[in-house]
Design a protein around this nucleic acid. Structure first.
Lengths: 246, 246
DNA sequence: CGTACCTTTGACTCGTGTCAACAATGGTGG
DNA sequence: CCACCATTGTTGACACGAGTCAAAGGTACG
């Protein structure tokens, strides 16, 4: 009897106050703001809250069948495409409140693999269930389109950066992006931990690890940032912006 | 009376057999294949078939309010982002049967401008009307998500190309892309006209016009392609592929 | 405590950008 | 119809930024 209640409690954990969307600090980032409370609960009910991933764990693998999109709850995830020849290209970093997995919509197959950069909690959003909810909640459908539109504009910003930007512009732009994404989450925009290695940074920005390292050293020597391993402090915000702008 | 009939005819031109989706050779490219005939007509009815654009005309402008997505019927269009500082980045080329405008979904504002590369006919698809149809035709909603997913994976392929590819890889990859897109439309995959200038090509691929020109010359000297102005003939398909692969 | 991995720094190379001159093309108006 | 000009594309010489190769220092993990 006691055991039975325990199991029931586990089944109901989606409704646990601590784990519902209505109680999540990040819901304003990953869900439309205009949802009614009962709509919010409907959405919350289809979301799976799986075991946390550890560093290096796969959230999904490139080539596997698309089923869900994912929202980062804590930690961070990288999205990486692995070509037939084995070369890897990181296509994005995802922080708490951000959504990934939309690379699977094209062929019903994930194009990228998603790998945890650190211990991370992830909400899984089964796509067929959210598609069904779209029929009842129009603002949800619109929100999904908006999320995909944001993914597209993000990728296009990266394209501009890669075609036009020097190594310094690429790195300063990324630092400013991380800074503003931290700010959105009410965290410090001037001091934060990089979730990714120098290697990942270079891969994402199309630079070698040596160049990444040299740029960090140069920025530090100029007194614009201070770095200690993965901890970054921005000392001269305006300088950083002006380098990023070119 | 005669005049009245004429006007009525004009209003009915969407139902003109020549201009309905059910009669369009390209419908298999831009619409889901699984549509019933009456569903196809429903979709066809909301689509606007505007006056053809001439070379250099804007289909939409970056910063204006998002209202529609667009399908290229004939001709070709480039999508270009213009930064505050005035630098331009071409983010895509769109050929007949391909769909653009999804960069407007993020902020309800087009991020890019879309400009005709030559005289082009474009179908305009008002987004709120297609959103409403989604409620009745689930396969249409899925198709829209798929189109956006394709846009995302296309952008990510370009990112890989820009971070890893040499000038030769970038250009040969683009030539192969154009070739296969022509093939999809039952046109020659070995001889075709480039719709864009060398300048546009270089801008898209992150290369200067001089480098583009030199790579074309080199490929021609090696007997892999033949070019004469914008006409490209692929002489050694396998060679081209092996260069593109790296 | 040792090993493996990640990062930093230096010397050198190479590909692409920059600057410049010139050729070819297409549109315009006399 | 042709001369003119603007635009676009080609080719060469040179410079420079990022890649490559190599070595050494730090840090974390078992």
């Amino acid at each position: 009897m006691a055991l039975h209640m325990l199991i029931d409690n586990k089944h109901l954990c989606n409704h646990d106050k601590r784990l519902s969307c209505s109680n999540c600090r990040l819901s304003s980032l990953c869900l439309p703001i205009s949802l009614e409370l009962d709509e919010l609960d409907q959405v919350s009910d289809v979301i799976l809250r799986n075991q946390p991933l550890h560093k290096g764990d796969y959230l999904y693998r490139g080539g596997s069948t698309f089923s869900s999109i994912f929202a980062v709850r804590s930690g961070s995830v990288k999205s990486v495409y692995i070509s037939e020849e084995g070369s890897e290209q990181i296509t994005g970093f995802y922080l708490p409140g951000e959504i990934l997995g939309m690379d699977g919509l094209d062929n019903n197959t994930y194009r990228n693999s998603a790998i945890a950069l650190e211990t991370s909690s992830i909400c899984e959003i089964p796509f067929n269930k959210i598609e069904a909810l779209n029929q009842q909640i129009p603002s949800l459908q619109r929100h999904l389109f908006q999320l995909m539109g944001r993914e597209i504009t993000n990728d296009q910003q990266l394209i501009s950066l890669l075609t036009k930007g020097s190594s310094e512009q690429r790195i300063t732009t990324l630092l400013l992006s991380l800074s503003s994404r931290n700010h959105r989450r009410q965290l410090s925009s001037i001091e934060f931990l990089l979730p990714m290695s120098r290697t990942d940074l270079g891969n994402y920005l199309g630079l070698t690890i040596e160049t990444v390292s040299r740029v960090f050293s140069r920025l530090q020597k100029q007194g614009i940032i201070h770095t200690e391993r993965r901890l970054v402090s921005i000392l001269e915000f305006d300088e950083l912006k002006s380098i990023a702008a070119g």
